[in-house]
Design a protein around this nucleic acid. Structure first.
Lengths: 398, 398
DNA sequence: TTAATTTCTCCAGTGGCTTTATTAATTGTA
DNA sequence: TACAATTAATAAAGCCACTGGAGAAATTAA
């Protein structure tokens, strides 16, 4: 996007120009409405340079002039520059058990639309995304040439270099599934990334979250059937040396605890996942007697949450889960000392009572100095996977 | 060091020049003996530019020509460029209980000398370092103007911005101790950094270690009276949002375990530190009967290690310690998935038998895919704190 | 209408990099 | 020994992104 500006130049000069262009564009992104003069003052670049580069951004369609801005004192009114929302579109997918969400975002990373596409056969994932990307683009008035990137968020272990889901307990995606290649082939000039969903949630929190925005290092804990984590280090998604970081569910907090399928004992996943919580409640309370009908886990969770929030029922089991999670979080804080820990996933159905218990336990067992880390529940509006994915693509390009 | 090259220039061009100079210098550092032509081929810069910048490096004393190099085919022999070891000196301190080590390193980060300075009164730390820095510089033939930086490695919690040791159980350094200010005042043009010792050990392993060199993410576990950790993420020392990362000792692996002074239960520090190991052996074996004389912990550890390595005694307690550490390491691997975990500190006295047990347990309890992380014992020759500190300063400057 | 002020643009100049050409040094061969 | 071939390093000329100052454009206040 930034490389087709002007004729061939010597590499280093081109580099400078591109870097300055990025700086200017970033400023325009952050400040909704800023003048050329404002950019010059803020960057230290000369007004001349800013004018030249801004004109380049305008002619490439990324930026538009939005008329005269207000000025406190006298003088010529500034011409305000803003990101051109229609200048480009980003597509983000969120793979689920029986299909996927597909969202379209404008250049301001605002969600324009999001649909759920049911999938019977995951073999067809690639071609399905290709089709529905075209549909969404058309629906929102974008030509295919305006597509900037596609991000696919998936549960499980990702091999980003090969663009594959290596293993996942949730979606039936074989290692051999070539949906990444299909996307690259259909949209050759476009950035395509496969990312772990927890990482994208973490990224969404770190970019948009009221708390997350203010820290460089953040841990997002995703509690559902499994327990995963997304880690933000120095503002970027951290994936570890083998793209395996964030296996929060297999942190052990009880080496004498129950045996986990991973070979260890007392893992959080076996103690504090949603299935573990439901199983505890079923075996220790009258839940099954009161609700004898066969139900899905989601339905059970809904009932449990309702009765917990309304009548404080099952608080023994839920508090216990909170304690386990607090031990896990405290271990993570001791190791990586993030500025914030965000709890997300289905467990958020339990509401603030659950969070309160987690915080209470962590404050009790944590070192004094580690109590500064904020522990909150995700309050993200919309789908954090697609929002994080779109933002990730955006920041990768610009 | 790089800023006084030539007259005033426009900012962006100056930036490019400096960046290219750094690139060239880095290449000369890595390749012992490289020609201007070789640099041009390797960087993609033009021969002319390389010549100009190399001349700048030579005239600033950082680089020297070391005569003609060998050439396979015919043609003019290249003039080899190398780092000028005498071009600068770096001083690194390693604070201990009763004094500190002070090492001097040349521009190739090679250790020239290292001395132990006993200290009765820690109030005098700053002036003592100033004095002994001058002595070491003179001893090695450096003028004071050749000093590039000083790194002080300290146990405990560091506030790097203020240059203070915030809390340490090992050395009696009050928060009010102004040794950082003293150093800055005595050597105003010089980079001065206070760093956590575990972080510096980790850095030394990641820069020089046979295994550590090959991974971007590394965990160094320092087991002595406490258990700390140094974390390398993307090749840099990671300190967390509050400079508190690496509190490995307070990771809990048994929420029903013994109460720790931190308020939690089953922390590694209370289960697997050197004092814990010695206490276990004293209470569960005949150690005290056989060695009734009062001894220091270090002496006890020496005896235990000797008998463990020679006669496999105390292997019950030592294996248990290894198991605890393995659980801690496995938790860390699950969370941050480093390429390597290096075990250091006094526990290394136990030799390869201890390491073997740690690896065995981690391999048993770890996820298949997490068994790829290498777990090794530190085999660093010399003092990793000063070596890591010197290297840290070097990489910060260049 | 004029002065003052602020925004934006045009023009000449600076400096770091590149390309092309030249000089320097070495090997191989007649 | 002379000379071509080859590689390394330097010199000269030109390119281009940025800067600073002059000036045009637009707006407010007097």
């Amino acid at each position: 996007m930034f490389t087709d500006v002007g004729p061939k130049k010597t590499s280093s000069q081109q580099l400078i120009k591109e870097a300055n262009m990025r700086r200017i564009f970033a400023l325009i992104c952050i400040n909704e409405g800023i003048s050329r003069a404002g950019i010059a003052a803020s960057t230290g670049l000369s007004p001349t340079t800013v004018s030249t580069l801004a004109d380049g951004l305008i002619s490439s369609g990324l930026v538009i002039e939005t008329g005269a801005g207000e000025l406190a004192t006298s003088g010529r009114k500034p011409i305000m520059l803003e990101v051109n929302p229609g200048g480009g579109a980003i597509i983000a997918a969120d793979l689920q058990k029986n299909g996927y969400y597909l969202g379209i975002f404008n250049l301001k990373c605002q969600s324009l639309d999001e649909v759920f596409i049911p999938l019977k056969d995951y073999e067809a994932l690639g071609s399905s995304i290709v089709e529905n990307t075209a549909i969404l683009l058309e629906k929102c008035g974008y030509g295919v040439d305006r597509l900037l990137g596609i991000c696919v968020g998936a549960p499980g272990i990702i091999d980003r270099k090969k663009g594959r889901v290596v293993s996942s307990t949730i979606i039936p995606l074989e290692t051999s599934n070539l949906f990444y290649e299909k996307l690259k082939k259909a949209f050759p000039d476009v950035t395509v990334e496969i990312m772990n969903e927890s990482g994208l949630c973490a990224y969404a929190e770190s970019q948009y979250g009221a708390i997350g925005r203010h820290t460089d290092n953040l841990l997002y804990i995703d509690i559902h059937a499994g327990i995963g984590a997304g880690i933000i280090i120095n503002g970027s998604i951290y994936e570890g040396s083998g793209e395996l970081a964030g296996e929060f569910g297999h942190i052990s907090i009880d080496l004498n605890g129950p045996v986990c399928k991973c070979g260890s004992r007392g893992c959080l996943e076996i103690l504090a996942s949603i299935p573990a919580l439901v199983a505890n409640i079923e075996s220790e309370t009258d839940f099954l007697k009161e609700h004898p009908e066969t139900r899905t886990e989601d339905e059970k969770l809904r009932i449990i949450a309702m009765e917990y929030i309304g009548k404080k029922r099952y608080s023994g089991q839920i508090d216990k889960t909170a304690e386990y999670i607090a031990y896990g979080i405290n271990n993570a804080i001791n190791l990586i000392n993030p500025g914030a820990v965000v709890i997300g996933g289905k467990i958020t159905a339990m509401g603030s009572g659950f969070l309160k218990k987690v915080v209470e336990v962590q404050r009790r067992i944590g070192l004094d100095r580690n109590r500064r880390t904020k522990i909150i529940m995700s309050e993200f509006e919309g789908n954090p996977v697609t929002a994080g994915g779109a933002r990730y693509i955006f920041n990768k390009i610009f």
